[in-house]
Design a protein around this nucleic acid. Structure first.
Lengths: 103, 103
DNA sequence: AAAAATATGTTGACAGCCGACATATGTCGT
DNA sequence: ACGACATATGTCGGCTGTCAACATATTTTT
C-alpha cells in the first residue's frame, strides 16, 4: 500500500462537499465557504482545474441532472475511489494532529 | 486578522520537530520519519529550501551549539512567530476535521 | 581499507494551486 | 426597460513547493 499523497485544502473541501451529495462547481464553491465559516474560498481557477483533475483520477464522475431547466450545471458525484481518497486524507490529518500532542 | 495560509505537510513536520527542541536539518529529517512512523520523509532538497524560506519568514532562527565538536551542524530554533504559525496550522487542521463530521 | 552513516547543499524539472480575467445567462428591484 | 447582482463555467500565467539527482566532506562501523 502506497503512501497517500497530501491533498490541498481546496481538494479536500471539494470531496467533502460531494460526500454530502452530488453538486456542481459553483454550488461547491458556495458550500465550502459556508461550511468553513467563510475561512476557505475556492476560486474558479482552482475549481475547474480540480474537477478536471479528479475526473482523470476517477475520484468523481459527471452525472445527468433529473431536474429540468438545469442544463447549464455540470453535476458531479463522488465515486467509491473518491470516497476512499477522502477517508485516507482524513486519516492523514488525524495522524498529523496526533503527532502534535504536547505542542 | 488575515486568514492563515495552508501549510505543506513537510513544513508542518519541520515546525513540529523544532517545537520539541532545537535541531539541525538532518536531525529533523530523521525525527520526522520516526514521528510519522515512516509515512513522511523529507528530502534534502525540500529540507534546505524550507529552512531558507522559514528563516526569511522569521519562523526559525539559527543558534550556536553549546556542545563542542558540532561545528558541522546548523542548529535551528523555533521563534515565537514560528510557534504562532504552527498553532494556527493546528487550528486549521482541527477545523478541517470538524467539517468532516458525518462523512 | 572499504562501506555506510552523518551532514549540508545546489540544480532542474514538474505539478498544482490560485488570482485575474473572460463570457454568458438569469433574476430582482426601481 | 435598465442596471446591478447572482449564477455558472471556463482559460491563462505566474508562483511556490517538491522531489530526484547530483555534489561534497567528515565520521563511524565493519
Amino acid at each position: 500500500m502506497k503512501r497517500s499523497e497530501p491533498m490541498s485544502e481546496s481538494y479536500y473541501y471539494i470531496l467533502l462537499c460531494l460526500a454530502k451529495g452530488a453538486n456542481h462547481g459553483y454550488g461547491i464553491m458556495q458550500m465550502t465557504e459556508k461550511l468553513s465559516g467563510g475561512d476557505v474560498t475556492i476560486g474558479s481557477g482552482t475549481m475547474y482545474g480540480a474537477t478536471s483533475n479528479m475526473m482523470k483520477k476517477g475520484w468523481i464522475r459527471e452525472i445527468m441532472s433529473d431536474e429540468p431547466g438545469q442544463e447549464r450545471r455540470r453535476l458531479y458525484q463522488l465515486t467509491d475511489s473518491g470516497r476512499t481518497a477522502l477517508r485516507a486524507e482524513i486519516k492523514r490529518l488525524q495522524r498529523m494532529l496526533e503527532n502534535a500532542q504536547g505542542v
